[in-house]
Design a protein around this nucleic acid. Structure first.
Length: 199
DNA sequence: TCGACGATGACCT
DNA sequence: GGTCATCGTCGAA
């Protein structure tokens, strides 16, 4: 039990929904420019590969952008949304499945000053790290980290004991185009945290 | 080539 | 509640 760091194998589980559920309460860390930033994940969404209408890899859609999703789990899928925001996902499952988990919010813990600088904030409030675009900016992730490992010395996750989590399972955000799959309860968040994008 | 648009967020009233 | 910034990606032409 000396290492709490999540392994590549952890992310290669075939059940992306269960993994997304599990990650709420776990710790996300990055170490860039000699600065550690970390926090406790409060909100995630599962995207279940080819069979999920909300997933970029729906029906096996394979483009330059989505190619990374088909790689073995344990790496980052980061893409630009609305021309402004970098959204950070973790690819899961084994090669060829294209499952991913979107990290939508976390509760800042270590390196808060660094995160506020990256976000251009002078006051600490929930907007520091709530919302997928804000998450990436706070922990210093951008497209250069696409396809890089999330089990490295620069980016890693850790298991925690998850004290006082009250897990809510509900629908995903911003996927109205996904028809009936928009109704799937594949968003998970901790009701006890204020660091959640949408309650 | 070109046009449409998106797994958003900040700011306004 | 509404508006809009901003640009890479993708599919149509």
């Amino acid at each position: 039990m000396s290492s709490k760091k999540l392994s590549t194998e952890f992310f290669q589980s075939s059940n992306v929904v269960e993994l997304a559920r599990q990650l709420v309460g776990y710790r996300i860390n990055t170490y860039f420019d000699n600065k550690l930033t970390s926090g406790i994940i409060t909100e995630t969404e599962a995207y279940a590969g080819k069979g999920d209408k909300a997933c970029h890899a729906h029906l096996g859609r394979f483009t330059k952008r989505t190619a990374v999703m088909y790689d073995p789990g344990g790496i980052a899928y980061i893409y630009l949304c609305y021309g402004i925001h970098h959204l950070f996902n973790i690819v899961t499952n084994t090669e060829g499945n294209a499952d991913a988990i979107l990290i939508r919010a976390f509760e800042p813990d270590r390196g808060i000053e660094t995160m506020m600088n990256r976000r251009g904030k002078t006051k600490l409030n929930k907007t520091l790290t709530s919302g997928p675009g804000n998450v990436s900016q706070a922990i210093g992730l951008n497209k250069s980290h696409n396809q890089t490992s999330v089990c490295s010395d620069d980016i890693w996750l850790e298991k925690t004991e998850r004290p006082s989590i009250e897990l809510i399972e509900t629908t995903r955000i911003g996927i109205d185009y996904a028809e009936e799959d928009a109704q799937l309860p594949w968003r998970f968040y901790d009701k006890t945290s204020k660091y959640v994008s949408v309650k």
